[in-house]
Each structure stands twice: as C-alpha cells, then as structure tokens.
Amino acid sequence: MSRDGSEPDASRGPDRPGGPDDDRDGLRPTPVSSALAWAGVGVVGGLLLRFAVGRLGAVAPLVTLPQGLAFALLAAILGYVAWATRRSLRGRGSRLAAHQAVNRFLLGRASALVSALALGGYLAYGLTWIGDPAERADDRLVGSLVAAGCALAAVVAGLLLERACRVPPSERAGS
C-alpha cells in the first residue's frame, strides 16, 4: 500500500515518476537560492544593526578575529565530514548507516543556512563602515570582511556536506 492508501502502481519503475529513483518524497540538497535568500536576510539584519546602534548613540560592536575563526573552524570540520561521508558512501571507508547520513545531511543544511545568514550580516555591517571617519572604523570593516569570508567558506562546506550524503544511483537501485 502507498501513503494515500491505494495499491502501488505496477507501471512505476526505476525510470518513471514515483519509482525507486524518484526523490520527490526524500530530502533534496538545499538550492543555492535558499542560501542567497538567507544571506539577504542577514544583509537586512546587518544594516539594521548598524543604523540602530547609530540612532541609539551606543558604541558599535567590533568584530574580532575569533568570530571569523569560529566560522573557519566550522568550515574545516564540515569539509572533513563531507570528505569522510563521500568516502564511506563510495565504499572506500566504513559503511554509513542511513540515520547517520540523514544527520550529516541536516548538519550540512543547518550550517549552510545559518552561515549564509551570518555572511550577509557581517558583509552588510562591514560595508557600512567604508569611508566612515569614526575611530576604529577600519578595524570594524576588516573584521567584518574576514568573518564574512570565513562564513562563506562554511556555507560552501555545508552545501558540499549535503551533496556528499547523496547515495550513488547504482546503490539506490540495489536497495
């Protein structure tokens, strides 16, 4: 029986919609457009932060090196996990259980989207300091751009981890 209670359609095969190779009901990798949308939300947040701090007369936050290094560490970890996952799914390492692959897939997705949000925020916040005569404006610009670059690396690594979790078609047909 299928999900809707009807009998399975015998005409569905590996090359037809609804067959074993159809991922319509499965997890699909995050489209780059989703990451760009979250980066856009981050841009709005970064701009709002900068102008809200200026309006309130508060001291603008300084983006320091450890903030960027945290994203660099995340990118390195995700990159390694993506490499290990791809290796195990291609039969060159220990086998990966289905729930482990799903967990890694979701880790990659969450990391990519949150990093995209931070990327947009850091980028917008940093760019608002260009040409500003305020004290430490250059430090805020450089720190923000470094953090944005590291967040970009984390976005790419997260998306690669998602794609590393795809099961090869030859194994999909056999299971």
Rank of each mutant, 00 (worst) to 15 (best):
Q67E: 13
W83I: 12
L78K: 02
V81G: 00
G91N: 08
A148Y: 00
T85I: 12
L65N: 12
D138S: 15
D132V: 10
D139I: 04
Q67I: 12
V81A: 03
A153C: 10
T128N: 07
R140M: 04
L107F: 07
L69T: 10
T64D: 09
L106T: 13
H99F: 14
A72Y: 00
P133R: 10
T64A: 12
A148H: 03
W129S: 09
W83P: 04
R104M: 12
P133M: 15
V59S: 14
S88A: 07
Y125I: 04
G149H: 01
L117W: 08
A76H: 03
L123Y: 09
V59L: 15
G131Q: 08
R136C: 11
A116L: 08
D132L: 09
G68Y: 07
G121Y: 01
L152M: 10
L56C: 13
V53F: 14
L119K: 00
W83V: 08
T85A: 15
H99Y: 13
F71T: 06
P61G: 07
G120T: 02
R50I: 13
L141A: 10
A118L: 15
A52K: 13
A116C: 12
Y122I: 08
R136E: 08
R86G: 13
A84R: 05
A98W: 09
G79R: 01
G126S: 06
L123T: 07
A98I: 11
A70G: 06
L49H: 07
P66W: 00
V142C: 06
L141K: 04
R136P: 11
G149R: 03
A84G: 01
A60R: 14
V63K: 02
S111I: 09
G54P: 05
G79V: 00
F105W: 08
S94C: 15
P66V: 01
W83E: 11
L141H: 09
R90G: 14
P61C: 05
L73E: 06
L119R: 00
A124R: 02
A98Q: 06
W129I: 11
L69I: 09
L119H: 06
R92A: 08
R86K: 13
V114C: 11
V81F: 04
L56I: 11
R92V: 06
A60W: 09
D138M: 15
G93F: 02
D139F: 10
A82D: 01
G54R: 13
A76Y: 05
H99A: 15
G131W: 02
A153Y: 03
A98N: 04
I130H: 13
G91S: 12
L127Y: 10
L106A: 14
G93S: 06
R87L: 09
E135M: 15
T85N: 09
A72L: 05
A84T: 12
G121E: 04
G108H: 07
N103A: 15
R136A: 14
